[in-house]
Every structure is written in structure tokens, then in C-alpha cells.
Design a protein around this nucleic acid. Structure first.
Lengths: 345, 345
DNA sequence: ACGCCTTGTGTGACCGGTCACATTCATGTC
DNA sequence: GACATGAATGTGACCGGTCACACAAGGCGT
């Protein structure tokens, strides 16, 4: 351990080379584990590396080799539970593969802004993961120029893309199906749905899972309410639903919406689950501690993030660590907010 | 717009140079806005840039100039509201300054792991922001080698550091003081405190703000309970407090703890705010929608993140955008969870 | 003893920019 | 008209690595 007082230029491979009395190429071979280096030489070089505290310059490496070992995550949001968890999963996997993680926030869905952010991300030369749960993300995914390695974290596609698609997703359809069936099984005549915005104009997988369950049960299909992303949207949507006494079960596009719905029901004096049952999606950590605690479908966001990185990693390097982390199936978590409908409907 | 079919090596300044019939240096001058370039030449170069879709290679720029225009955020967590909001603030400010944002998660507080992560961050050559609200972060902040530009987002220091310190913080002391005074003013005999872990062994600013308010009011000072970071910790701590009928007001180290506390009080049949008042910190978006909605102190985390970046930016570049974004003062938000104590204590 | 292949090592060019300096040419000054 | 001056542009080296290739020494087959 040599304490090098004030800041000075860090040692380069040439510094190490002269210190060890070899050429810089030999140093390069040592740090890359090339086989044909005499053990005695290797040791001398290693000693010099230790001595000078040499660390390979990431920038130079990237420039010379072309491989950046970087993944940039493009996302419209960093604070929502789902988004943040995906980011966390990506970071975990990237760290394990010694990749650097960059982040770019798509503040607006406007074309120019999105294009600029995608440009910045491609400029790094590394791979890109786009969280495309919203219009900004979808647009970004579409803006990435061909040839740039990119993986999209997307809503469940309507039809499974053939072969190898650069997308990962959770089984939203199944999740919605399970939650809806749970509520129907409790005896509710039908289940109302407060939706999160769809990233595209098409029907979301959650909506279609919900529909399917209703259809199978022969239950009437109410028009889905639009709730936005946050509790405020859920609150507004539920204030309307609460006026209708026939509403006894509400499925919410995510847990934040559900929180707003619970609040609205409380304000309108409708008890949960006595009069109305509520369920959400995601199983954010606070769900278990709400009053009443929230029935929801757990989604494996960190696993999704890890899978996204694994896919990208495979595209970026030959030595693909095949068989990526699997994404867990959605799992219904029943808590206090769901129960049988009131005795006489 | 020329569509270049399949992926090929992007244009470099030399490509542009030959296309425009000038030297690469002149191209460099044009893209850097150097004054002494004849307008006609400048135009020709600009046209060639457009034509070839030239974009300056960030890696090469970094290597040649030494300036990386990168900030790496080291944090123990990306999903908690406070952490995520700080990250968002940093990203906003960094984007405005066209800096790239990297992120490294301190998964363990263990020395070796932290050191490795700090190493990786310094290897980029850019600046570092460490969120040091926890032992891992504090350790990371201490591990950053001298000479590397770094800004710490820290708990309020016990004594204000003199002159220019590379730290930013919110006024936790004032926040705790305000919340405690609010509860005391409602008539509570004293206020119990469920603390978040302190990043160091010293008394946290929140604790001391709470103490000061109690002392000024001549109220007895109960022993603070340790709650951890999440709702589970608050829940556990509050189950104990709930056994003591003299407890009528509980201040919680953050909103997540408060959620757990509310839940525990519900489970033990103590009404809020009828029998017990509860207050939190942070004003996370869900606070307003809880039942009862949560009295809390709003902290300007995104502003804090912006300020952290501004400080770093100033340290990294001469052309410092002085007068960084100010961090808003903590602001007490009174909601349903706080009220006067029960009539006969 | 000769050539050949393998092992260990060194040399030069290159990645795509920037920087310091040299060069050319037009202009103003005495 | 000679000369200093400044604007416009070009040349070479450099940042810190990697890559392709050259080259010397040693082992082996014939």
C-alpha cells in the first residue's frame, strides 16, 4: 500500500511496463489473462501493478476495443415502485457482469425530447434498456436506430412475438385473470376495472385478462375507468364508481391506484371489504400495511429487470450467459381488502 | 436525411473533413464553435456533418480531453421514496447540463463491497454523488479517494461545517422540531419517536430537533424506538408503544414507518387521531391518500438532488453555474392523523 | 543440422477525438 | 515596400488502451 499524497496522473500500462522492465503489450497480456506469458514475467508485472496501484482506464478500453460494457436505462420515471424495482433488477445483474449502468429520464413524451435522450444513450456506445410502459417509453423504443442493441421492458404483447424478440414482460394477462377470478369466486356479480394508461392505443393485456375472466363467468363487462398512474387518479375514478350501489368489486391497474380507490370509498362511507372489495397489482411493500391491507397480484419486477439485462448481455457478447434469470409468475396475494359481497346485492 | 441501410461505422471527424475538403482540425473547430473559422468554411463543414449524420464520439472525447461529463450516483437503495427522488433531482439537473448519469447500488455495507463499488465509480473519471443516509453510504463517502470530485447527500450535520463543504442536506432538525411542536401544541403531554436508523453512531438531527422541542415545552423525553426503514419496522415498534396507554402522539422517522405505525395502532384497536396522533417525514405521494391521511413534513428531495449536482458541477468545471437550485425549507403538512389527545389523559 | 511449429515478447498502427504549434495569407503601419 | 500582426487553416503528437503482425528462442521431427 503506497500512499500517494496529492493527486497525480494515475499509472498507465506504459508506466507499469517500464517499472516491470517489459513492454506495454506484455502488461496488456497480463491484465487480460493471456496464456502465453512466462510465469516469472507475469509475477513481476503483477507486482508492478500492485506497486503503482494501476487500474485499467475504462474510457481508453472502451475507445480502443469498441466494447463499452455499459447499459443505459431509459425510463419515464424513477420513483414509482414498478419502475424503480425494474431499475434495481437491471443494476443488480449489470453489477454482477461488471457493466456500468447509466440512466436517462424521459421527462416528456414529445418526439424531440425523446429523440434527444435516445441519442444521448446511443452515444455511449453501450446497450440500452427501455422501460416502455408508457407513451414516452414506447416512443423511445421505436426511436432507437437499428443496429443498437436494445431491450424493451414492455406490456404483455397481444400475440407472442415469434422467435427471439428483444422484449421482456410479465404475464399481465394472467395476473389480471387471476385477480378477477378471485373476486368473482367470492361471489361478486361482476368486477369493475380502474385502468392504468395503456402505453399504446391497443387494449392492454391487463384489460384483456380481466375481460376473459368476466366472459368465462358470464359476468357483465362494465366499461373500464381510466385512472392514470397515481393515487389521485384512482381516487377520482372511484368517487364516480362509489355512487353506483351495484359496484361491489374494483380491480385497480396498480397498487397506487388502489390506494386512491380505498380512500375514495372511505370518504363516501363505503366499507372495504364489507360493501366493496378492492384489488391491485404489483404488491408494493406498503400494501400489506394499509388499512385494510390490500389484496394484490405480486409481479416480479426485479426479476424482470435482471432478465432484461441478461437478454441485452447476450446480444452484446458472444460469451452469452445463457439461460437468464427467469421471471417469476404473477402470484395472487389475498389480504383484507377483498371479501364476499354484501348479503343482499 | 440519408438512410444508411445496414449498420456501419459511424462517421468520424476525419470522414467529415474529407467530405468537406478541410482538415480534421477545422472540423473540430466547427463543432466546438471556435471563432476563427471562415463562415463559408463553417457552412461547408456543417453541411458535411449533416450529410454524414456525424455525432461526436463521447468516449473519444472523454479520453482525449480528460473531461468525462459524467456523474455517478452511489446509493444503497433506489426504491425508497426519498432516495428515488434525490436520484431524480440529480438526473434532471445533470440532463440540463448534458451530463450522463451513472448509478451504483451499495448492496452491502461491507467494506470490500463498498470499496469495489467506489472503485468502479471513480474509474469512469467523472464526479460522484453519494447518498449517505445509511452506513453503506457513509462508508462509501469515506472511501472515495482524495482528488475525486464528490458530493455527499447527508443527514444534517451536528455542527455546520465551515466554508465550502462538499455536502448537501435538508434541515432535518428544523423539520423534526416543527412536527414535534405541532403535536405538542395540540395538547399532547409528550411525543414518542420511532426513529429511522442513523447513518452514524451520533445522534441524528431529527432526534435532536425532536428533543429540543420537548425540552422547550418542558415535556418528558421518552426513549426513541428504533424502527428501521420500512413499514415492518414501524409496525413492530408501534406494537410495543400501543401497550402503553400514556402514549398519545408518535413521530415517525419517515412516512413508511408511519404507515406501519398506523397499521399497528389499528390492529391494537387504538384510533387515530382520536386516541393517538401520528406524524411522519418526507410527504411521499401516498400520504394524502392513507386512511387517516398522514400529517407529515415535506422535504424537498428533488431540490436536494439538483443542489447536489450543482455543487458537483461547480467543482468539475470552471464555468460554474453559480447560485445552484435552492433547497426548499421543510414544510409541515397537517392532515387527519394528528389531533388533540383524548379528553382525559 | 535443417526447417517448422510453438511460446514468449516487442513494435507500430489505430480508436476518435483534443492540444500545442507551424504555416499561409491578407491586412495595417511606418 | 518591408515587417509585424492576426485570422484561417493544417500538421504532428497525445490520451491509454487494443489489435495485427514481426521476431527471437526453444523443442521436435527427419
Amino acid at each position: 500500500m503506497n500512499v500517494t499524497g496529492h493527486t497525480r496522473r494515475p499509472a498507465s500500462i506504459r508506466d507499469v511496463a517500464t517499472a516491470a522492465g517489459v513492454s506495454y503489450q506484455t502488461v496488456s497480456r497480463v491484465i487480460n489473462g493471456h496464456p502465453s506469458v512466462r510465469p516469472s514475467t507475469r509475477e513481476r508485472v503483477q507486482a508492478a501493478i500492485e506497486e503503482l496501484g494501476f487500474r485499467r482506464n475504462a474510457t481508453a478500453l472502451a475507445l480502443a476495443s469498441g466494447r463499452t460494457r455499459t447499459v443505459t436505462v431509459l425510463t419515464a420515471n424513477t420513483t414509482h415502485y414498478g419502475y424503480a424495482s425494474i431499475l434495481q433488477g437491471i443494476e443488480e445483474a449489470a453489477r454482477a457482469a461488471s457493466y456500468a449502468v447509466g440512466i436517462g429520464v424521459l421527462e416528456s413524451a414529445e418526439d424531440a425530447a425523446v429523440a434527444a435522450e435516445v441519442q444521448r444513450a446511443t452515444d455511449t456506445g453501450g446497450g440500452i434498456v427501455v422501460i416502455a410502459y408508457d407513451p414516452a417509453g414506447v416512443r423511445a423504443l421505436g426511436t432507437v436506430p437499428a443496429g443498437v442493441p436494445v431491450v424493451g421492458v414492455v406490456e404483455t404483447p397481444a400475440s407472442p412475438p415469434g422467435g427471439e424478440s428483444p422484449w421482456v414482460w410479465t404475464d399481465d394477462r394472467e395476473a389480471a385473470y387471476q385477480a378477477t377470478r378471485h373476486l368473482l369466486a367470492l361471489g361478486h356479480a361482476t368486477v369493475h376495472y380502474v385502468a392504468i394508461p395503456s402505453s399504446t392505443r391497443r387494449t392492454s393485456a391487463r384489460t384483456s385478462g380481466w375481460r376473459q375472466a368476466l366472459k368465462e363467468a358470464g359476468a357483465p363487462e362494465p366499461r373500464p375507468a381510466q385512472g392514470g398512474w397515481g393515487p389521485a387518479g384512482g381516487h377520482a375514478a372511484a368517487l364516480k364508481l362509489a355512487r353506483d350501489p351495484s359496484v361491489t368489486a374494483i380491480l385497480c391497474g396498480n397498487d397506487d391506484l388502489a390506494l386512491g380507490v380505498l380512500r375514495a370509498l372511505h370518504e363516501t362511507g363505503r366499507s372495504v371489504p364489507g360493501e366493496v372489495s378492492v384489488a391491485g397489482f404489483d404488491d408494493a411493500p406498503h400494501c400489506a400495511f394499509l388499512t385494510p391491507s390490500l389484496t394484490t397480484v405480486r409481479l416480479d419486477f426485479t426479476g424482470l429487470g435482471r432478465a432484461a439485462f441478461a437478454l441485452l448481455h447476450g446480444a452484446l457478447e458472444e460469451s452469452a450467459p445463457v439461460a437468464p434469470h427467469p421471471v417469476s409468475e404473477p402470484e395472487l396475494v389475498v389480504r383484507e381488502s377483498s371479501g364476499p359481497p354484501p348479503a343482499r346485492a
